Computed example of a mutant assay.
Amino acid sequence: MSAQPLQQQHAGAVAGSSGLRRTARLEAAGFLDALDLPGPAQSLLPWARALEGAETAAQFHVITDTVTGSESGALLALRDFLRAAGGWCDDHGDRAFGDRYRRASDLLDVADRLLFQLGVDQLAAHENAGLSSAGRNPTGVRQPVLPLATR
């Protein structure tokens, strides 16, 4: 592969998406290696393992909501990353691509709202069915209900 920048290699022809991505990886390999960053999904792996150990709807909800719905969660971090990518495109004269990244980030806002409501619905269903503490609470004292729709 030529060491020419990506845009010069493909000035006259449009390569397939796999070829473009492969060329970009090769072109930026040294840059990415120098950053010495962990894999983007690495921080989610312990959360996925914790989810497997959840025994109640409340435990499940708290883990899932922390990952997907909290301000420090992965979903909103990805949304913010895409907004930053849009800003980078704007700063480099690619406003149309910046807008596309921002529209993609808006979809994550929609996903956040859908996941929030899904979590509330699941908690309510378990509470209504008496499943939130069934067989999990040795004291027999009913667990407090989390307030619904607080976002």
Rank of each mutant, 00 (worst) to 15 (best):
D109Y: 07
V120A: 15
E55N: 14
S72R: 14
T68D: 02
A50L: 06
C89H: 11
P38E: 08
A85P: 01
D33S: 15
L44C: 03
L82H: 00
G87C: 07
D106I: 02
L20R: 14
L32P: 06
T64K: 09
D91N: 14
S72I: 10
Q117F: 04
H92W: 09
T23R: 13
H61P: 01
A74Y: 06
A48H: 08
D121W: 05
A111W: 07
A96V: 07
G19S: 13
R21Q: 09
A84C: 10
A57K: 02
D112M: 08
D106L: 11
A124Q: 12
R83V: 14
R95C: 06
L44F: 02
A28Q: 13
G93M: 02
D33W: 05
I63W: 03
A124E: 11
V120E: 15
E55F: 06
F116P: 06
L78F: 04
V62C: 05
A48P: 03
L107H: 11
L123F: 03
E127A: 08
R103T: 12
R22T: 15
S43Q: 09
A74E: 00
L82P: 00
A41S: 14
D121Q: 13
W88F: 12
D90F: 06
A28H: 13
W88N: 15
F97C: 12
L123V: 08
G119I: 00
R100F: 06
S70T: 06
L118S: 14
R102S: 00
R22I: 03
T23S: 14
V120G: 13
L20A: 10
R21N: 04
P38L: 03
L20G: 15
S105F: 02
E27V: 12
G93H: 08
G73H: 00
R79T: 02
G86M: 01
L115D: 03
H126Y: 06
A74W: 05
L114F: 11
G69V: 02
L26V: 13
L131P: 00
P40G: 14
A54P: 00
I63L: 03
I63Y: 04
S70C: 01
E52Q: 15
L45D: 11
G53M: 09
